[in-house]
Design a protein around this nucleic acid. Structure first.
Lengths: 198, 198
DNA sequence: ACCTGAACACCGTTCAAGT
DNA sequence: ACCTGAACACCGTTCAAGT
């Protein structure tokens, strides 16, 4: 009558799926493959996750939490000015996006509403960016400025990881140019000069 | 002895796959489903495309060509200044990304090297952006500036389509702020003032 | 030259049965 | 309470056989 002892756990399964994602892409994360990896049969996984999308969502949450910690570290080590902070966050994001491109891509992949990082994990990753944006443009524009910075960093690194920059040129220089241009524009947006609007 | 007459064509197959992509996402584009749609059995598709990835690549090429035409139209209708052109291109891109999010996402999806738009179609889509960037920052920085603008537009709209902007606020305003900030920063980058660099 | 049915190894998921 | 084998409807792809 002793109930079957758990032979795996949510954490084990997520870790296995994340490894397989980074090795072979999302399509390499099969329930059968994950089951082999954690030493169990495929149906058992459904005792821990409703379906594959929920498992992918748990992986995405794990990635978002790691990104949040990476951001905290970067802020702790960088120079004191708001611009220093933005540059440190941008560099940290690109570092993670290049080191673990498929995990990072999952943050904004939109495969399914279920395969999405949890709201809390997203907030944890967004917080350092919002704080830096606030320090530059003030509270009224902080959200918009954070979105602009995140969009640039995500867009640039996902294009870079996808091999979209094929016309030569220095890719890292273009990234740093983008960060510098955004900083210059954002600082100007809140100084006496008005940013030109359509 | 009369050889079997072709009952479908590459163009038909690509059109069917593109419709199915926009309706149900990439995973809804199955060889079986496409075959039904064009009135043929699945194995016949392999007379027209090496495999599914090559078919997806052909769809991506189709999307890139449409984006190039959309850009040409936008440039033809907009105001005369370089900044007008950049704003028109940015608005045109967002319009397409919101109207056909899954097709647009395919441009930078990086599923497989085969599932990628052809180099020519990518160049056709990039050309109007490069021209506008050249008009603002000059030839030496045109490539880097075009990459920055494209990265922002792609990053922002893909996050928007993925539902990543959940904290409220005016999303369109943030997009226009981003474009304005980039324009201000790029103009300043080539004027007397130096953009601050790390 | 293109189309077809049959077959292969896979996939996610369900379910009744075990402990 | 979790694990299992068997089964379901699907998937991409290959191949020999048709016309």
């Amino acid at each position: 009558m002793s109930p079957a002892r758990a032979r795996t756990s949510r954490g084990d399964i997520v870790a296995a799926a994340r490894d397989m994602l980074e090795d072979g892409g999302l399509e390499a994360v099969s329930m059968a493959g994950v089951a082999v990896r954690v030493g169990v049969r495929p149906p058992s996984l459904y005792k821990h996750f409703r379906d594959r999308n929920e498992l992918i969502g748990a992986v995405a949450t794990d990635v978002a939490l790691e990104l949040g910690r990476t951001f905290e570290d970067a802020v702790a080590r960088c120079g004191p000015s708001p611009a220093d902070r933005v540059r440190a966050l941008a560099t940290a994001y690109r570092g993670m996006a290049l080191a673990r491109p498929r995990a990072t891509a999952l943050l904004f992949a939109a495969i399914s509403p279920d395969a999405t990082p949890s709201a809390e994990s997203q907030a944890a990753a967004a917080r350092p960016i919002l704080a830096a944006a606030d320090a530059i443009v003030g509270p009224a524009q902080a959200l918009a400025a954070a979105r602009v910075l995140t969009a640039f960093a995500h867009g640039f690194t996902s294009m870079e990881a996808a091999g979209a920059f094929r016309f030569g040129g220095d890719v890292e220089e273009a990234y740093l140019l983008g960060v510098a241009v955004l900083l210059a524009g954002l600082e100007r947006a809140t100084s006496g000069d008005e940013v030109s609007r359509p």
